[in-house]
Structures are given as C-alpha cells and as structure tokens.
Simulated assay, not measured.
Amino acid sequence: MPRAHSNGLELEYETFGDQADPPLVLVMGLGAQLTVWDTGFCELLAARGFHVVRFDNRDIGLSTYFDDLPAPDLAALIGGDLSTAPYLLSDMSDDTVGLFDALGFAKAHVAGASMGGMIVQQLAIDHPDRLLSVTSIMSTTGDRSVGQATPEAMAALMRPPAATREQNIEESVKASKVTAAPGYPPREDELRAKITANYDRAYHPAGALRQAAAVTASGDRTEGLRKVDLPVSVIHGAGDPLIDVSGAKATAEAISGAELVVLPGMGHDLPQELWPEIVETIVRTTART
C-alpha cells in the first residue's frame, strides 16, 4: 500500500475507484486499522461514483507511531488534568487534511466511524473549507452526559493488552461479540479470520491507549458543532452498547440541518446486511453538497 506524508507523519492508505471521481475519505475509530473499513464496503462506495480512500490513523496500523511519548494517565485526564495527553483529536483532524494535501484533494467528502466520527466532526469545526460533506457514524459529541457505554462494553474496550497472539485473538473475538450488532450477530469464523489478519498486519496497543487519551482530553465539541454549515448525516445503531444512541441524537441536534438515521439491530460495528442502507445515506449526504 502507498504511504502519504502528512504534517511530518507517514500515513498508510489505500484507494478504490476512479481518481477522477469526487474523493471520499473514510476515517476509522479507536485502535482500528484501515482494514476495519471492509473492502466490500469500500467497493460499494466506489461503485456509486467516489474515489474512496481508507487510511491508518496516527499511532495505529502501518502509520507513524508515537512510542517516544510517555504513557498517558487516563484517570488524570478524566479528572481534568490534561498534562499527559499525547495529542488531541484536532491533531488527528489535521493529519487528515495533510492526507488531502498529499493526495491533491482541494476538498473531500468524509465519513468517520466511532473515534473517526469524532475526528470528522472536528474536521468540520476546524477545516470546513476543505470539506464537501460529513457523515458521522456510531459516534458522539464529547459531552460526557450522552453516548455512554454499558459497563460490559467499556470493560471490553479497556481490557489490558494480551500476553500472546492467541490470547489477543480470543479476547478480541469475545469483545467484538459484546459490542456487535444485536440484530446482526457476526459469524465467529469470519470474525476470527478478520481479527487474526488485523493482528498479523499490525498490533500496537500503546498507540490505541494514546488515541483513547486524545478522545478523553479533547472535550465537548457541541458548541463548535453548532457553527457547522455543511451537509451532515449522523448514523447510529439503536442497540449500540459502546456509544449509546443518545450521542448520535446530541450530534444531530447540535448541527443545523443534520439528518439522523438510527438503524434497528445495529450495534457498534458495520454489519454487511446494513451496508446498502449506510452507503445510501452517505450518497444522499454527498448529493446535498
């Protein structure tokens, strides 16, 4: 895969579709590599007339790591002491604009999932002139009174790093079942194969911890979102245990004209059965440009 230079970083990326089509950049979530945007999902979007780009955020996958930074203190960050925050979501949104620059995009459509939704929200606040449309998927505003996780889902997300490859795969399968779509449970063989491939591609739990610190330290985006004047859609699963649907509702309420799409049976994942509806919402959003 190619690598783009962005703000002194190297970002691993992959493209789908015709370069002459409008660019659509996909931003993934906490600790998630570009491969979590399934190839089939990207191909569906490309078939609808987009030059699709998926990439590894900083500190994950095959992009630049920040292992020279001290470990963040999540408890202190939650308490308001931001001194150990390695970077913020605004830095990650700047990375995305740097990717635009490296690929020659004056403007692009963006869609982000989970932490990626937070990043594209930050993009809309900080760099509205570089965006054509925004789709925020299974995300929230940063207001701690909305979008809370269930205790089981939070435990699955924040489990300590595994000691071995086999332990990581087993624990990741269990965690994915906790956060998956209740109406569309994943097939275990397919889930295990994807988790194994991602582990073998790149395993970097220290980067995921720093990304979690960035989310915690970045605070509430609600007031910034009130000023956003772009075509925006907010997609969320009605049964999401990791980010409650209240996070999506707050996002849509903050952005004038935003479309809210709540999908029954969807959890904190992108089940293949719902790809057509998710793709259709993204296409509808881009058409409002």
Rank of each mutant, 00 (worst) to 15 (best):
A85G: 04
T84E: 06
D95S: 11
L123A: 08
G117D: 07
Y87Q: 03
M115I: 07
G98S: 14
A108T: 03
P128R: 06
D101Y: 01
P160Y: 09
P160N: 10
A149W: 04
D129L: 05
A124L: 07
G112H: 01
L157D: 09
K107D: 11
F100I: 07
G116F: 00
A106L: 04
L88F: 13
V134D: 11
P86H: 05
L82M: 14
A156P: 06
V134Q: 07
D94V: 03
A163Q: 14
V134K: 05
M138F: 03
M115S: 02
L99W: 03
S133V: 08
P151T: 10
M158H: 03
H127I: 07
V97D: 02
S83M: 09
T164P: 09
I119K: 07
I137C: 00
G142H: 00
A102N: 11
V97A: 01
G147L: 08
M118L: 14
L103P: 06
S114F: 04
F100E: 04
T135A: 13
S145H: 13
I137D: 01
S83H: 12
R159E: 12
A155L: 09
M92K: 01
P86E: 02
M118R: 14
D95P: 08
A113N: 10
I119Q: 11
G98K: 10
T84L: 02
G142K: 00
T164S: 15
S114A: 06
L157G: 05
V110S: 02
S133K: 04
R144C: 01
V134P: 13
G98W: 04
Y87G: 07
M154C: 01
A113V: 15
P160E: 13
V146Y: 14
Q122T: 15
M92D: 09
V146G: 01
D95A: 12
L99Y: 04
L89A: 12
Q122I: 01
V97Y: 07
